[in-house]
Design a protein around this nucleic acid. Structure first.
Length: 573
DNA sequence: GCCGTTTTCGGCCCGACTGTTTTCAGTCG
C-alpha cells in the first residue's frame, strides 16, 4: 500500500498547524507549509520516486530533513515528530484557529489560561463570559467568537467556480455603476481559474474610495459586514461566500491586480526575487527606495523583476517562476484553439437535444466536429443503448452527415467499463465507430490495485480511445476513486489511448496536477464537455481553464487537431 | 526548516483592519 502525496502533504500541514500554536519559529512553520504545497502540486508519486532511489532533496523546498521525513512516512505510514507534537498540543486547538479572528496565539492563550482544548470548551467559556476577562481579549472579541461558532456549523467550505461566476458577475456590475469608478476586476483564485473558490477578491480603481465602499457594503446580497476600512472591506453574502474589496488608485492597478491574484506562495517567491534586486513589491507598486519604478500594469511589474509575463492560471509556485526566468513558459491552450468536442450526449439516451440540434449548436460555436457519445446499455438509468440501437444510430448519423454543412458528427459511444475491465458493447459494433470513449459509472469502491487493473484491461481493447472523467470525482460531493493515475497515463501512452479532461464544472476531471503529469509524460488530453444539452457545450471554457492550470499547450490537447489528424491518432496499431 | 550570482549563517514579503490598547499585537489575505 503506497502512501499518496496528498497524505504526505496533509501530515506536513498538520505539523505546521501544531508548530504554529506551539509558537515555533514562523519560518520553520512556513517550511512545512511550502513542503506540503510541493507534495500536493507534484505530478509524480513521492513513494515511487523513493522506490526509484531518486533524491527528494532536489525538489523545491525539500531539504535533507524533510526528505528524511518523507521517507519515514512512506516506510512506516507515520511521522514520529508529528506524534510527539500531538502529545504537547491538543488536536482540537487546530479547529479553534479555523475560526475567523482566532489564530495560533489566541488559541494557545485560551488553552493555557482557561484549559480550552476544543470548540465545545470554547463555546462553554464564551457562554460564561470568561473569555472577555483574558488579557488581549475583550467583550467584542468574545461576541465575535460566539458568532463565528454559530456560523462554523453551516460553513459550506469552498464554492465551485461556475457558481461563483454568477455571484461575481452581478456584484461587479453593481460596483461598476458607482460614479467615479474606473475598473472593477475579480482577482484571487477566481482569476487563477481554480476549480473552487474560497472567497472572492474584487479590485476597484478610482479616485475616491468612500462611495464604492458604501455601495459594496449596502449590496442586496450582503448578510454581514465583517470589516470596513478606507481601502479594504470584507462582507459575507447570504450564499455563505466571503467577498473582499480592495480599492487602489489607477496608478497602482497592475501591482494591486498582481498582488490580489496570488497565489500566496507565488507572490512570496517573486517578492524575494525582488528583494535580491533591492526592490520592494507591495500592492501599490514596485519601489526602489522611495521611488516607484513599476506598477501600472502587471507586464511592467514582471519586467522590472526580470520575468516574462506569467499567466494567472500558472501562478502557483510550481515552476512557473523558473520557467519565466529562462523564457520557457508554455504557450497555453485557449478557446480559439479548440476545434471540436469529443464527448456529448443526445436525446437518444440522457441528453436533452437531438443529434441534429447538438450538431447545429456545435457549428454555431465554430467547431468542425462534434462526437455523439451516448451511453451503453449498462447505464439503464440513462436509457443506455444496446448494440442494435447503436447500429441504427450509426446509420442515422451517416445520413445526417450527408445533409449537414460545416460540421461533422463523429460516431461515438461512452461505453461502460465493467467491473472486470471488459466493455459493455461488442467489438463488432465498436469497430464501426469513429471513436470509443470509455467510462466507469459503478464499482467505485474497488481497491487501488483492482481499479487500476480494470482500467488497463479496458484500454487493452483495441477500439478503446479515450478514458472519460478518469477519477470519477464530483467536486464537493464525491471523492475520486482509488487509482494509480500515473500508471494509467503510462498505460494509455503505451497503448495509443488518451485521457479526458471532463469540462463539467462539478467534475473538472482530470485536475490541474494530473494535466501537468500527462503533459510531462507526453500524453495528449481531450478536453470534452460531456454535454447533455446544447448549452452545456459552453462548459468547454471551464475545461480549457483547467487545462491551462495544468500547463497544457495546444499541442497537448487532442481536440485542437483536425478530424483528419484525429482519425490517424484514433486508429491504434 | 530551506537556501545561496551578497551568503554554508543569517536571512526568510508586505500592508490593512480590528480590538484592546495608550503604541501595538494578532489576524488575515
Amino acid at each position: 500500500m503506497s502512501v499518496r502525496n496528498a497524505e504526505i502533504a496533509e501530515i506536513f500541514d498538520r505539523m505546521a498547524d501544531l508548530l504554529e500554536i506551539q509558537g515555533a519559529n514562523r519560518f520553520r512553520v512556513r517550511a512545512y507549509r511550502n513542503a506540503s504545497l510541493t507534495a500536493s502540486g507534484l505530478g509524480r508519486s513521492l513513494a515511487d520516486m523513493l522506490a526509484a532511489s531518486e533524491d527528494l532533496s532536489e525538489l523545491p523546498d525539500i531539504g535533507k530533513d524533510l526528505a528524511d521525513k518523507i521517507r519515514e512516512i512512506v516506510d512506516t505510514g507515520r511521522l514520529a515528530a508529528l506524534e510527539e507534537l500531538e502529545k504537547d498540543v491538543p488536536a482540537g486547538l487546530v479547529e479553534l484557529t479555523r475560526l475567523p479572528g482566532l489564530g495560533p496565539k489566541r488559541a494557545k492563550r485560551l488553552h493555557e489560561s482557561l484549559g480550552i482544548h476544543d470548540l465545545e470548551g470554547l463555546a462553554r467559556a464564551a457562554r460564561k463570559h470568561r473569555i472577555r476577562e483574558l488579557p488581549g481579549f475583550g467583550a467584542k472579541t468574545e461576541q465575535r467568537i460566539v458568532e463565528a461558532l454559530a456560523r462554523h456549523n453551516q460553513d459550506e467550505g469552498r464554492h465551485k467556480l461556475a457558481d461563483v461566476e454568477e455571484i461575481a458577475g452581478a456584484y461587479v456590475a453593481c460596483l461598476e455603476a458607482v460614479a467615479g469608478v474606473n475598473r472593477v476586476v475579480v482577482a484571487g483564485s477566481y482569476r487563477r481559474r481554480q476549480e473552487t473558490v474560497g472567497d472572492l477578491d474584487i479590485l476597484v480603481t478610482c479616485k475616491k474610495g468612500a462611495p464604492v465602499m458604501k455601495a459594496f457594503a449596502e449590496y442586496d446580497e450582503v448578510d454581514e459586514v465583517s470589516s470596513q476600512g478606507k481601502t479594504r472591506s470584507t462582507v459575507l453574502l447570504r450564499s455563505g461566500l466571503q467577498v473582499d474589496l480592495r480599492v487602489v488608485p489607477e496608478v497602482s492597478y497592475g501591482a494591486a491586480l498582481y498582488y490580489f491574484t496570488g497565489s500566496k506562495a507565488h507572490n512570496v517567491a517573486v517578492r524575494s526575487i525582488a528583494v535580491k534586486k533591492k526592490l520592494k513589491i507591495n500592492e501599490y507598486g514596485v519601489f526602489k527606495g522611495e521611488r516607484r519604478v513599476a506598477g501600472k500594469t502587471e507586464d511592467e511589474l514582471f519586467g522590472v523583476v526580470g520575468l516574462r509575463y506569467i499567466e494567472p492560471e500558472l501562478r502557483e509556485n510550481r515552476g512557473e517562476i523558473e520557467a519565466a526566468q529562462k523564457n520557457r513558459l508554455p504557450r497555453l491552450v485557449s478557446m480559439s484553439d479548440i476545434r471540436g468536442d469529443l464527448h456529448a450526449h443526445s436525446s437518444a439516451t440522457d441528453g436533452h437535444h437531438s443529434i441534429r440540434e447538438m450538431a447545429e449548436a456545435a457549428k454555431n460555436r465554430g467547431y468542425a466536429y462534434l462526437a455523439i457519445t451516448d451511453h451503453s446499455k449498462r447505464v439503464t438509468i440513462a436509457h443506455g443503448m444496446d448494440e442494435a440501437r447503436f447500429r441504427r444510430q450509426i446509420d442515422a448519423i451517416d445520413r445526417l452527415n450527408a445533409s449537414l454543412r460545416g460540421i461533422r458528427i463523429l460516431k461515438g459511444v461512452e461505453v461502460d467499463i465493467l467491473n472486470d475491465g471488459s466493455l459493455d458493447i461488442r467489438n463488432s459494433v465498436l469497430k464501426r465507430l469513429d471513436l470509443v470513449v470509455g467510462a466507469i459509472h459503478s464499482g467505485f469502491g474497488l481497491s487501488r490495485e483492482k481499479q487500476t487493473e480494470r482500467i488497463m484491461r479496458a484500454m487493452d481493447n483495441p477500439y478503446f480511445n479515450i478514458l472519460a472523467h478518469p477519477t470519477g470525482r464530483l467536486i464537493n460531493q464525491r471523492p475520486a476513486y482509488e487509482v494509480d493515475m500515473e500508471r494509467v497515463m503510462r498505460g494509455a501512452l503505451e497503448r495509443g489511448c488518451f485521457l479526458e479532461l471532463n469540462a463539467q464544472p462539478d467534475r473538472l476531471d482530470l485536475n490541474d496536477v494530473h494535466c501537468r503529469t500527462a503533459k510531462d509524460l507526453g500524453s495528449m488530453v481531450a478536453i470534452s464537455t460531456d454535454a447533455h444539452s446544447t448549452n452545456d457545450l459552453d462548459y468547454m471554457r471551464f475545461g480549457v481553464d483547467q487545462g491551462r492550470r495544468g500547463w497544457l499547450e495546444p499541442g497537448d490537447v487532442l481536440n485542437t487537431r483536425s478530424w483528419r489528424e484525429l482519425k490517424t491518432l484514433f486508429a491504434r496499431r
